[in-house]
């Protein structure tokens, strides 16, 4: 009985020790806690490899992507926030290196074009449907012509 209790106690102790340490491994890197790992994961999915055509640094094997992952890891471990890492990368590689470009005069078209096109489409669709539902009005001349046609068909 005593031995059994001791065993359970040891097991419990090791479990709680593991929980306390909370060391997480991801992408071959060790993190102090889950929050750091999540920040790192979000960063490597959001940062874009400048050497590649449309790939984030998580998916790319390019040496530059490796360097950027390493830099992001070091900065996260040094306590930098996600935004600080992004700013750091953008300062060196430009907005190209971030999949969510900021809204400014240069990128306004990028952000607004879909909205403008959708709005234009809705307006055109509304106008067309309204036009179709309007009853067709005949001009005086057309009315006369219609009367004539009716008259003629009666005689035939």
């Amino acid at each position: 009985m005593n031995r059994w209790l001791l065993c359970m106690g040891a097991l419990l102790l090791s479990f709680s020790a593991a929980l306390l340490a909370q060391q997480v491994t991801y992408d071959g890197h060790e993190f102090d806690n889950e929050q750091q790992r999540r920040t790192y994961e979000a960063l490597i999915k959001e940062l874009r490899c400048p050497k590649c055509q449309n790939q984030n640094i998580a998916d790319s094997n390019a040496p530059l992507a490796e360097d950027m992952r390493e830099r992001a890891y070091q900065m996260v471990m040094a306590g930098q926030s996600k935004q600080q890492v992004i700013d750091y990368m953008v300062a060196r590689y430009g907005n190209f290196a971030h999949y969510k470009p900021p809204f400014n005069a240069f990128t306004a078209v990028l952000w607004l074009a879909p909205l403008v096109i959708a709005l234009a489409g809705i307006i055109i669709a509304l106008r067309l449907s309204r036009k179709r539902s309007q009853p067709v009005a005949l001009s005086d001349e057309e009315q006369r012509e219609l009367a004539q046609l009716k008259e003629r068909s009666k005689h035939d």
Binding site: P50, K51, P63, L64, D67, R71, R92, Y93, G94
Partner: peptide, 12 residues
């Protein structure tokens, strides 16, 4: 290590 190049935004 490419540390200097990183500061310049060298990508190749």
């Amino acid at each position: 290590e490419g540390n200097v190049a990183f500061e310049f935004g060298v990508y190749g």
